[in-house]
């Protein structure tokens, strides 16, 4: 595995060789040997389709998976702490204190029987031991931060009294209440209407810069990923297949799966023409093929693709793709240049 080098010397998040298995017959290989670093104040977009392991990766960072059914190997460090060994109080401090998460559906993430103000205040009291008045003051401050109009009145609203976009803002306020260093976003705009989605994306981008948080943003939508991310990781069948700066991955995708995704998002497509669609469907995570998981769908697959390990092409500045073809094309170009 090639860990991503980051701009700073002390990364905020350091994930090394992370694998997640769910018990079952046969076991499900949800995440396979994922490694990456995230610098403080950096935004990493993880792009993948359903079942690619992107959400599982995110939940593992908060240790939200059911312990009894899950086997996690590898290491996760957030802010210098070994997340996988956290217990009890330390784990509670990690969740919501150091790192916190926002979800796709705020109506499930917010408690319907408490007001927005109570929920934010409760979090502040639990994590910081603040007094009730101070906590409420912070709640108001947070609602203003996420630009909820007439915030003071909204403090006393229950989640169902708010519109979809407003609820999503309230959830962001709740997640940021204890000033986490790391924000994990799990498709937070997928359920929203287009005109509301862009508002939330811009809000997240502003808040990230204002507060200097590190953000890991999981999405299936390339457009959304481009709007918020500094770097992009493309995930397929539980593995990272390609990473790099957003610009590099979008302009010059090296992995055939990334190329297929771009084509499917109609990047540069002429209206009415057939799309360059990737055939087939992702493999079952309980029966991953040997070698490159994408090989069975790949137009350029060859014998070497079904042998482990798959060579990795690296392009400098944290740019790499795990693909037989990409690494060979580079080697040939290099040889040609020398002769």
């Amino acid at each position: 595995m090639t860990p991503l080098p980051s701009q700073s010397d002390t990364p905020l998040v350091r994930v090394h060789d992370l694998s997640v298995r769910f018990a079952g017959t046969p076991p499900v290989h949800a995440v396979n040997n994922v490694s990456f670093d995230l610098a403080p104040g950096e935004v990493l977009g993880i792009l993948g389709e359903s079942g690619s392991g992107k959400s599982v990766t995110l939940k593992t960072l908060l240790r939200l998976l059911p312990e009894r059914k899950t086997r996690i190997t590898g290491t996760i460090e957030v802010d210098g702490q070994d997340v996988l060994s956290l217990q009890g109080r330390a784990l509670a401090d990690h969740r919501g204190g150091v790192a916190s998460m926002i979800f796709q559906d705020p109506s499930l993430a917010l408690d319907p029987v408490y007001t927005i103000g109570q929920q934010i205040a409760e979090t502040v009291i639990r994590h910081e031991g603040a007094s009730k008045t101070d906590a409420m003051a912070r709640a108001l401050e947070m609602l203003e931060l996420v630009r909820i109009p007439s915030a003071r009145r909204r403090l006393d609203n229950y989640p169902h009294e708010m519109s979809g976009g407003m609820r999503q803002r309230a959830m962001i306020a709740l997640a940021l209440a204890c000033r986490p260093k790391l924000l994990l976003a799990d498709e937070p705009t997928t359920a929203l209407d287009a005109t509301v989605q862009i508002q939330i994306l811009l809000l997240l981008r502003d808040l990230q810069q204002e507060l200097g948080m590190g953000v890991i943003f999981v999405t299936h939508d390339i457009g959304v990923a481009v709007e918020v991310s500094d770097r992009l990781a493309v995930m397929y069948a539980g593995s990272f297949v390609e990473t790099g700066s957003v610009r590099d991955v979008i302009r010059d995708a090296r992995h055939p799966y990334s190329k297929g995704l771009l084509a499917a998002n109609l990047v540069g497509a002429v209206p009415g023409t057939r799309l360059d669609a990737v055939p087939g469907a992702p493999p079952a995570l309980s029966a991953l093929p040997e070698g490159c998981s994408f090989a069975p769908r790949c137009a350029h697959a060859e014998a070497a693709c079904s042998a482990s390990p798959i060579p990795v092409w690296t392009g400098g500045d944290g740019r790499w793709a795990r693909c037989v073809q990409a690494s060979r094309a580079e080697a040939m170009a290099g040889a040609g240049g020398r002769s």
């Binding site: 519109s163 811009l202 457009g223 481009v226 990047v267």
Partner: peptide, 17 residues
């Protein structure tokens, strides 16, 4: 959403839901 990293959306065209 813009698909061009150099031309990200700068301002939401509409406010509210």
């Amino acid at each position: 959403p813009s698909l061009d990293p150099d031309r990200r959306t700068l301002e939401a065209p509409l406010a509210g839901d």
